[in-house]
Amino acid sequence: MDQGIKPINRRQGLRWLGAAGGLWAAALAPAWAQSWPAKPVTVVVPWPAGGPSDIAARPLAKGLQDALGKPFVIDNKGGSGGNIGTAAMLQAPADGHTLLVTSSAPVAINPSLYKKMPFDPAKDLIPVTNVLRVPLVLAVPPNSPLNDLKAVMAQIKAKPAESIFASAGNGTPQHLTGELFADALQVQMTHVPYKGSAPALTDLMAGHVPMMFDSLASIGQHIKSGKLKAIAVTGAKRTPLLPNVPTLAEAGLPGIESYAWYGLFVKAGTPAAVVQQLNAEALKVMKTPEFQRTLADTGSEYVGDTPVNFAAFVKAEAEKWGRLVKISGATVD
């Protein structure tokens, strides 16, 4: 042995390996981001094609594809309130090449609504950014004698046992917004669930049900055509698409805000560098004129955010809607 070189003992060797491992990990993080995406990216939308989630997913996927030079392919997998598609997305590797764009249901509502869940959104998903949000509208049939929120509230309080509202289905944001409304009025209303917005809106326009909360993206065209009468919107401010319709707060019921929102998620375990790059690229797309046009056309609002802030928002939404599920007794099992 060369007398000028001292042997390394085991403890020194482990320290060196630990230090080298740390340097390797630090060097690898940027490499992950630089190599992503290395292949086509699948964007799972856990709803049937043509649904509201596509309003967020399709322009976002196209923008990311144009910016990053790799295909971003939409994969619609509907069923069980978003649970089937979300569970399928979680079977893919945590490498950023399979994304999830979904409404609030499978990540913030279903854990309270379903007795058994095929995944735990709080543990299995990483929130990347909120993509957009759409206020809901309280609407009544065109021939309804009720023309404003004060009249609606007066009738409900006078005859709570006869007060009915329709929704797109049990546990949907439309249903739970109705429950939030009833809770604020301190009355119990009768909920009539439908299998989606379309049949509920058909019965509302025909006068078979007296009122309904629905997403502006779904109900707006029927209000503009005069087939429905808008009473109030559930957002913090008026929407440019219905500038003459007041917010609930303006109309006399403060403290209620509700949105149908759509967010971008990846599987837990995805490298932090990929999450950060995906967030940055998504925000760039969401600020483009093309995406802003989508927002304007659908009455949606830009709500891009950091992963940390979006995670806090998702947690707060899960607590908010979990309380309403419990109050309403809603279940789909």
Rank of each mutant, 00 (worst) to 15 (best):
V152Q: 10
P118L: 07
L68F: 07
R133H: 09
D120R: 13
L100P: 07
P160S: 07
P59M: 02
G169N: 05
A108T: 14
S112C: 09
G171D: 02
N110R: 07
D124M: 08
R133Q: 11
R133P: 00
D120A: 09
V131Q: 07
P135L: 04
D95K: 06
I74E: 05
A161E: 15
P106A: 12
S144P: 09
T98Q: 04
A56W: 05
P59D: 02
N130S: 13
S167F: 03
I74T: 11
L90S: 01
T129H: 14
K116H: 10
V152M: 14
P121W: 08
L60F: 03
I164N: 10
D54A: 11
N147H: 13
I55M: 07
N143P: 00
D148W: 00
M153Y: 02
L99C: 07
G79M: 06
V152I: 14
I84N: 15
A158I: 02
V131W: 05
K77I: 15
P141G: 06
I84R: 15
A154R: 11
V128A: 12
K157M: 11
P106H: 12
P118R: 13
G169P: 06
P121G: 12
A168M: 06
P52L: 01
G51T: 01
D75H: 13
M153I: 15
V43M: 13
A88T: 08
D75K: 15
A67S: 15
N170P: 00
P141Y: 05
L146S: 03
V44N: 12
G51I: 00
T129R: 14
G81S: 07
I126H: 11
I55E: 00
V128Y: 15
L138A: 07
G171I: 02
S80C: 00
Q91L: 05
A92I: 00
L68H: 09
Q65W: 08
L68K: 11
N130A: 14
P111I: 02
A56K: 09
M89W: 05
F165W: 12
N83M: 10
G96R: 11
N143A: 14
L146M: 12
S112P: 11
